[in-house]
Nucleic acid binder design. Structure first.
Length: 566
RNA sequence: CGCGGGAUGGAGCAGUCCGGUAGCUCGUCAGGCUCAUAACCUGAAGGUCGUGUGGUUCAAAUCCCACUCCCGCACCCA
């Protein structure tokens, strides 16, 4: 049977991520993983923090911490936030793990043996006062073309010309501002991507028909422009040491070791139960694994070109990706999320404002699948109020309260179904199969439109069946309708669980189901699905609605707080 | 001529690959219901699908051409 390996792009360690990061990789990967698990599939969902590189070192410096302590702390902070978002990682690892170190070094050695690595001497800028080599973008100076004074070493933001740090006039360190810089020769390893170009092209060809356009078009663009040798090492302390003579004080560049951590994290997972788990069953010489990656569009070149190049070049049967789900950007009021301008919402702030399901629902319903999409508090509030409160929350509430008040807080008896019931079940069945297909195809926005329609069907049914009227003349008939309605609540809990798992649990607990099963309904078996609750079983009458409405005052307050231009 | 994405009723989107009566959600208006959170259900109004009154076609939101405007690609950050 096919096993599903799911990875989400690794969030970088240097600070708490915002909502855009969440919706572009981890959250949709979670929804998909949950859906597959509920469908009875064998799923391994892997993520980790990406910890190496200069930004991490500098962030640690700013906090007066050594970089390892900093990363350990930040890893815990992020891990905690994601668990509050109910992201169901099987493993949330760290790219600084032992496993990743060994795997990365192994990959490098194999690449060398196979002739895909060459050594080059390059000139690097060294800052005497900072005591370190500086990456290009941490050198600032005056642009030789336009005279802009704060041009960076890799590109002038004013005239957009690509620069070399040595082009800059009056160069200085962006870290300390010091101008005591010198240029030193430094040995580095380069991955010879051009040698793998044909194979990569074939790799992309094989998946062209299936992959989203945003993914293949970015990959094609790189191939079209021609691949160049890429430097895979850096003059840094923090990272995975290069296992070669003469490379003391050098580590691998983050883009090289970060994706390998997908494998590393799987090995970390296997360590927890070595008797039954083996990471190679998922990654090495497998025939039964379907591997799906989730990422935002900036990560696509690394996952379509660089990482496959590594895995191809080692000449070992490592599992390569089968499907890539790429996302565009989520914007904040049409503009970018911006840390320095205090625009946008970070994941920890989001959780302080609302329960995770509010965010999960909105983000998935508005996932930037085909183009960038924009977050606004107005849009957020109106969708939460309408879909979660009025449609779903109210349905649960009205059914349970009505049943309790008319016939007591127990699942009422079911008698013969009438046409109206059968028609409803038929409609529901169609919608569920559409919903299921959308989830399978990773069409999240469409899936959520369908989920909402499924919820609406319930309200529709109640209106048509009108148990509050029927009960006056035919108690058995009213009992049947309400029996069905309560069973629908259970079914909704199951169907909603990939997206809003915490709410699903609440619904199950209202029905006093101790060990709820969330098995996905089978095609054509809806009658059975709607008969799972035993007659006479007690349920709880909700004291509070499942959700709370977001008022206009609250919206105004949030706009103010998060720098939304109203 | 830098690269990429976009332009569809008041708002947000689908439809564009594979031409054939313009669809969904919100909002608005009217009606129904009264079990429920002033919630639910039904119906209606509202668009010449950025521009050229451009080309192909019996037929174009959809294919081709030209143009306009918007948004990313610059600290932070995905």
């Amino acid at each position: 049977m096919t096993k599903y390996l799911i990875t989400s792009a690794l969030p970088y360690i240097n600070g708490i991520k915002h909502l855009g990061n969440l919706v572009g990789s981890m959250l949709p990967a979670d929804v998909y993983s949950r859906f597959l698990r509920q469908s009875g599939e064998n799923v391994l969902f892997i993520c980790a923090t990406d910890e190496h590189g200069t930004p991490a070192e500098l962030a640690a410096l700013e906090k007066n911490q050594d970089v390892e302590t900093f990363c350990t702390e930040q890893h815990e902070i992020q891990k905690n936030i994601y668990s509050r978002f109910n992201l169901s990682f099987d493993q949330f690892g760290r790219s600084s793990s032992e496993h990743n170190l060994h795997l990365t070094q192994h990959m490098c050695k194999k690449l060398m043996e196979n002739g895909f690595i060459e050594e080059r001497i390059i000139k690097q800028v060294y800052s005497i006062d900072d005591g370190r080599f500086l990456p290009d973008r941490y050198i600032v100076g005056t642009c030789p073309h336009c005279g802009y004074e704060a041009a960076r070493g890799d590109q002038c933001e004013n005239c957009t010309r690509v620069l070399d740090p040595t082009d800059l006039k009056n160069p200085r360190s962006a870290v300390s501002g010091s101008d005591r810089l010198e240029i030193k020769d430094s040995k580095h390893l380069f991955l010879k991507l051009p040698m793998l170009e044909k194979e990569l092209e074939k790799f992309i060809d094989e998946h062209e028909a299936e992959w989203p356009i945003v993914v293949t078009s970015i990959a094609r663009k790189w191939l079209k422009e021609g691949l160049r040798e890429r430097c895979i090492t850096r003059d840094l302390k923090w990272g995975i040491p290069v296992p070669c003579d003469g490379y003391d004080g050098k580590v691998f560049y983050v883009w090289f070791d970060a994706p390998i951590e997908y494998i590393g994290a799987t090995a970390e997972w296997a360590d927890k139960d070595p008797e039954t788990r083996n990471y190679k069953n998922w990654w090495y010489d497998t025939k039964d694994v379907r591997y799906v990656e989730f990422m935002a569009k900036d990560n696509i070149p690394f996952h379509t070109i660089m990482f496959p190049a590594t895995l191809l070049g080692v000449r070992e049967p490592w599992k390569k990706v089968d499907y890539i789900k790429g996302f565009n950007w989520l914007t904040f009021y049409g503009g970018k999320f911006s840390t320095s301008q205090k625009r946008g919402i970070f994941t920890n702030q989001a959780l302080d404002e609302f329960e995770s399901d509010y965010w999960r629902y909105w983000l998935m319903a508005n996932a930037p699948e085909n183009s960038d999409s924009s977050f606004t508090f107005d849009g957020f509030a109106s969708m939460i109020n309408k879909d979660l409160n009025d449609v779903l929350g109210n349905f649960v509430n009205r059914v349970l309260k009505m049943t309790a008040s008319k016939m007591g807080a127990r699942v009422p008896e079911k008698f013969e179904l009438q046409d109206i019931d059968k028609l409803f079940i038929e409609n529901l069945s169609k919608r569920i199969s559409t919903y299921t297909r959308c989830l399978k195809d990773l069409e999240f926005r469409k899936a959520l439109v369908e989920l909402r329609a499924i919820w609406t069907e319930g309200n529709n049914y109640l209106t048509e069946a009108a148990p509050w009227t029927v009960i006056k003349t035919d108690k058995n008939r009213a009992s049947t309708i309400l029996n069905l309605a309560i069973n629908i609540i259970r079914l909704y809990a199951v169907l909603s669980a990939p997206v809003i798992p915490a709410t699903s649990e609440k619904m199950m607990s209202l029905l006093q189901i101790e060990k709820p099963d969330y098995f996905w309904p089978k095609e054509g078996k809806l009658f059975e699905e709607l008969s799972k609750l035993s007659v006479g079983k007690e349920f709880s009458v909700p004291e509070n609605p499942l959700f709370q409405k977001i008022t206009q005052d609250r919206i105004d307050e949030l706009c103010e707080k998060y720098g939304a231009s109203v």
